[in-house]
Amino acid sequence: MNVNHNTEKDRLNFWEKLYLPEIARGLGLTLRQMFKKPMTRQYPEERWEPTGSYRGRPVLVLEEDGERCVACSLCSRVCPALAIEVQAAETTKEKERYPVKFEINMLRCIYCGFCEEVCPEEAIVMSKDYELIFTNQEDAILGKDKLLIPIAQLQDRLEFLRRFK
């Protein structure tokens, strides 16, 4: 006969089966916690400055002569949440392709960082921005105006990528 010898009855010893001593231990644990210093902070007043490894909202790198992105759409392809929409167009610059439209739907984005990982131009990187507040669905779709961030502000992340990617 197939007898299971790992039932609750077999696993627990007498005191455990009584519950009470274990309950007392548990209560003791929480009681001790009550006198410790809180770990949380008073958010809007005390802010947290993330380090380079933090994956906040994805942004596009803006250099002096415009965006790095060449609208290859690889980020859009790899994005597991289908958050990115890119529309390419032609320019007369040496890199003949650029995004006329680049939109990230922040309601879809799951901050996985795949877009950053796949980008052949290091044009999309995860920023430190974690404060995303929208009052309607349309606002949550960020266009190039909100996505392009000067490269100077992204140094921490770029340095992190250089070292660990």
Partner: peptide, 9 residues
């Protein structure tokens, strides 16, 4: 068609 869309899209 140039640059209108990626083929996989």
């Amino acid at each position: 068609f140039r640059f209108a869309s990626r083929v996989w899209e």
